[in-house]
Structures are given as structure tokens and as C-alpha cells.
């Protein structure tokens, strides 16, 4: 039961990732791509924690935390860059 539910959650998150990827490739504007990228990294955090759970390795949680930090800084940096021209 628990296994099935976890698989279902992984499929839903994977589908969400693919839809964000569609928006990332489709655009049309740079801001659209950055939103899609932001969503993809946040789904990626869930993905990393899922891998940590499957493998039973708590050290991957630190990877997820650093990933969250870097994606935040990345989005801010790109947004500041976009403000100066499209």
C-alpha cells in the first residue's frame, strides 16, 4: 500500500516536471523560462529527498538543502539580469 502510494506520488511529480519542462522549452518569454526552471528545481528537491528515502541515505538531504539555496540565488540573479533588457 505504502509502496504503491509512493510510486503514485513519484509519477505525479514526474508529470509535473515534464509540464514545467514543456514551458521551459516553449517559452515564449525569458521570464516564462525562468518560472519553469524555478518550478523544475523545486520539484527536483522533492526528487532528491525521494532518492534519499529510497536509498536510505540521510546525507542526500544536505544536497537538497544546498540545491534549494542555489536555485533561489540563481533565480534572483537571472531576474536581476532580465530587468536590464529582455
Amino acid at each position: 500500500m505504502v509502496e504503491t502510494l509512493i510510486t503514485l506520488a513519484a509519477i505525479l511529480a514526474g508529470a509535473a516536471f515534464l509540464m514545467a519542462l514543456y514551458r521551459f522549452l516553449q517559452g515564449p518569454s525569458s521570464a516564462d523560462r525562468v518560472v519553469a526552471f524555478d518550478v523544475m528545481t523545486i520539484i527536483g528537491i522533492t526528487g532528491i529527498v525521494l532518492v534519499a528515502y529510497m536509498e536510505g541515505r540521510g546525507i542526500y538531504l544536505d544536497v537538497a538543502l544546498v540545491y534549494a539555496l542555489l536555485s533561489f540565488l540563481g533565480v534572483i540573479a537571472v531576474a536581476r539580469y532580465l530587468e536590464r533588457g529582455y
Binding site: 503514485l8 509519477i11 505525479l12 509535473a16 516536471f17 509540464m19 514545467a20 518560472v35 522533492t46
Partner: peptide, 11 residues
């Protein structure tokens, strides 16, 4: 995961 899915759909 369902909310993540809805977010992707909204996107």
C-alpha cells in the same frame, strides 16, 4: 505531489 502536478498544469 498532486499539488505539484496542478502547479505544472497551471504553468
Amino acid at each position: 505531489a498532486a499539488f505539484l502536478f496542478l502547479g505544472g498544469l497551471g504553468l
